[in-house]
Amino acid sequence: MKPLNMLVAGVGGQGILFASKIFFDAAMAKGLKVMGAETHGMSQRGGSVVSHFKMGDQTSSMVIPGTADVLLALERTEGLRNLEFLKPGGVYLVNAPDLSHVPAAVRSHFESTGVRAHFFDADRHALAEGKPLTANLYLIGYLSALPEMPFEFAELKEALTRLSAPAVVEANLKALANGFEGARK
């Protein structure tokens, strides 16, 4: 099992805490040591939110800049804001229809540091299903299809099943599966 450092960045109300709970649960099911933290400003709603997730033998709950294997951006500006956490060769996955919003300076930074940038229009897919709040799950499904991730799709699916309220479990699992399929297309 490889260690994993991951950041989930977005704005309040996007389900960032729930997203990181899925990874905590999946890691715990494997008996792994996990740490993490959620950071946000004074605003109750609409402010920047970042969730740190660390798996493996570490001491601090916060990801050290330059060491995140994965930066999951639920919102594009918040993704860019947290770029310093991503390690060279890390995975950047952003909730967007394409990468045209990524400024040139960032593209060349990606190239020079070997960052693998992915995009997935989770908002559009989630909205089309009438479940705009499941965009986070589309992106996690997408992530689980990437070879860099130490979790199998099935492991995340089990974690999501354990964490979902009965009324929404079906819609949640569908969103996760749709994201997974989206990555394989």
Binding site: S43, G47, P65, T77, L80, R81, L83, E84, A105, H109
Partner: peptide
């Protein structure tokens, strides 16, 4: 990366 991000002058979300 910090320098690149600083150069973007991203809008700070107002409190």
């Amino acid at each position: 990366a910090r320098d690149v991000v600083a150069g973007l002058e991203l809008a700070v979300r107002p409190t």
